[in-house]
């Protein structure tokens, strides 16, 4: 099977720091691929390189077998790659609906939309509310409330809902459960499985081994700026994975 998103030889340097050292990456259709690695292993840098948030110094990325060179997250988004970043990427003072539609606002039909470029706030609010309800985030009372007035879990829910609603090719989640409580984490995991059941592959970066082993189909172990190995969660234990990512054990390359 051909990977839907593939990268080879990615290199990214920040001054003297090498964040990515000839990293490879493969994501297959319909799967949940977990990316694990120690702090500073370059997980986020790799994800940013395939989602357009940073431009790699070297290396190539293919989407659906076609080479892509994203120069901004907007370009990646336009071809259907949605990312939930660790820092959430939301504008705190704006409303949930505004944030969900940031950069792809709906305009009113007819003259008001084309000539006066008026936003169709009602349609955007309805869509946002439907999406949040769909994903079980009905506890958000007012779709017009500012994102800054939401709890951490609710914000995360909105961010995931945004990605799930618009991601048509790939959804990337960078530490989606890091700031969440037990119940909210569970909700996000359900969201992730929900997105996969619609046939959209997911990249999940996480430090939480139980979560990773519960939902991932394959686990990409990142170490010192490149891919160390890819393991099958059914054939390896959590301690194996931790040993690989910290360098305590060497994987046999066969997996």
């Amino acid at each position: 099977m051909e990977p839907i998103l593939k990268a080879r030889g990615l290199v990214k340097r920040y001054g003297k720091v090498t964040a990515l050292n000839h990293a490879d990456f493969d994501l297959y259709p319909g799967e949940i691929l977990a990316v694990i690695g120690d702090n500073g292993a370059g997980k986020s840098s790799m994800i940013k390189a395939v989602s357009g948030a940073t431009i790699p110094d070297e290396g190539t990325v293919w989407l659906d077998g076609k080479e892509v060179n994203f120069r901004s997250p907007i370009e990646a988004r336009d071809v259907g790659i949605e990312t939930v970043y660790q820092q959430l990427a939301m504008s705190p003072a704006l409303s949930i609906a505004d944030n969900m539609f940031m950069g792809r606002e709906l305009r009113k039909p007819g003259l008001m939309g084309t000539l006066f470029r008026q936003l169709d706030k009602a349609a955007m609010e309805k869509f946002a509310r439907d999406k949040l309800n769909e994903l079980g985030l009905a506890t958000i009372q007012n779709i017009n409330q500012a994102v800054e007035s939401l709890s951490g879990g609710q914000r995360q829910g909105v961010a995931v809902a945004r990605a799930a609603a618009f991601g048509s090719k790939v959804v990337i989640l960078d530490e989606p459960t890091a700031a969440l409580g037990v119940k909210e984490s569970r909700k996000v995991l359900e969201l992730i499985q929900d997105v996969r059941s619609r046939g959209i592959p997911i990249i999940l970066i996480s430090h939480n081994m139980p979560h990773v082993f519960e939902i991932a189909d394959r686990i990409h172990v990142h170490r010192l700026g490149s891919r160390l190995c890819v393991i099958d969660p059914k054939e390896h234990s959590m301690s194996d994975a931790v040993a690989y990512m910290t360098g305590a054990a060497e994987p046999d390359r066969a997996a």
Partner: peptide
């Protein structure tokens, strides 16, 4: 909306798709 988003947090605005 983009003016407000950029003023709030330009990096977040960029990541969520604002030029």
């Amino acid at each position: 909306r983009h003016v407000y988003a950029v003023g709030d947090d330009p990096e977040a605005a960029e990541l969520s798709g604002v030029d």
